[in-house]
Design a protein around this nucleic acid. Structure first.
Lengths: 186, 186
DNA sequence: AAAAAATCTTGACCGAAATCAAGAAATACA
DNA sequence: TGTATTTCTTGATTTCGGTCAAGATTTTTT
């Protein structure tokens, strides 16, 4: 859930300023959870160091990596935070990580303080919407190889940041298949 | 892109009031476009009668049905409208349809008029985000049958509203496969 | 109402990805 | 540093959905 791709510099700096001013720095050990599926999420943040994976557990007991948050990016289940319902996903630190955290109450107070803040919140939601919608459209790419190549094009450094096994889950293929795709195209 | 599922009654009626007060009723012939892919979208609306399909054309020349809008639901490429970029999707009337349309300028003016309007816009974006995110998570359901059953559970009347061929595209399977799934489970 | 077009069903066959398995390489941690 | 664990690769086999084809049904149009 990085918002950098769809947000203007001015909007980004306003949000960054908010997290810097109001947020508290919190560290997470490798494997520790920032948010848990089925539990209401009451905080979000900006990753200062490290990386997080977004994990969704299905009713059939399958585990899928559905997203990431890296340094400088937004982290949190924005949806659970805004609607107050249990989170559909969990968020885990992939390594020792540090986050500038903001709880729901402070964010709500920030929004309520000013119409321009309210608008900033709307803009943030709109940008997250655009990002998720792009992800959804990419699901319609028919072959795993197409999905892999599109992902590499969007995030060339992802390969260095996450193990192949995780990328495979993200791309909805088995690790063996991704390994073969990788061999095929290079 | 129906927002009814995630929006409260009060929010819904405020938006409905906006479209009723400010919107103009426009009719669309079967097959006519409400919005075109690659073209900036400057309007949205609420469907009064009929139905629309959201279509995405890939670089490989494939055509995918990625969403619907039925009577009482929001219609429009909210993303292209908010970021001013060309639309990623086209929107076509599936039959003779009528829409209460609102252009971008009027919506922007509505937002700018009042902090509570701005908040309403944020809430709308948040609900659309939740809906698309749910769609994205469902993409991780491994078998077509799971996806089909989840869809039927969410929208039981979809079968009567859209042809099987369209549902197949929406579910990312061939019509032949969906036909067989349907035979298998009933 | 008849003709034309589109949609749906069913069968046969094929191919790409999943599964199963085992060894190699890399990473964690004690 | 060495050991244990996890991850990655590669091969053999299977399975599910795609493709091709043809006939039935429904819908649209004239």
């Amino acid at each position: 859930m990085d918002f950098n791709r769809y947000i203007t510099a001015a909007e980004f700096s306003a949000l960054a300023e908010l997290f810097r001013r109001e947020g508290r720095s919190v560290t997470f050990a490798r494997g520790e959870s920032f948010a848990c599926q089925e539990v209401r999420n009451r905080r979000c943040g900006v990753v200062e160091q490290g990386a997080f994976r977004y994990v969704h557990l299905t009713g059939q007991g399958e585990r899928h990596v559905v997203g990431y948050a890296f340094a400088g990016e937004f982290v949190g289940d924005y949806i659970s935070m805004s609607n107050g319902l249990p989170a559909w996903i969990g968020i885990e630190a992939m390594c020792e990580s540090r986050v500038l955290c903001l709880d729901n109450d402070r964010l709500a107070a920030f929004y309520a303080a000013d119409a321009t803040h309210e608008r900033l919140g709307r803009t943030l939601a709109e940008h997250l919407l655009a990002e998720v919608y792009e992800r959804l459209l990419q699901c319609y790419a028919s072959t795993p190889q197409e999905r892999y190549e599109a992902l590499l094009h969007r995030c060339p450094d992802l390969l260095n940041l996450v193990p192949l096994k995780e990328l495979a889950s993200y791309l909805r293929v088995r690790p063996e298949t991704l390994s073969r795709i990788r061999r095929r195209i290079r």
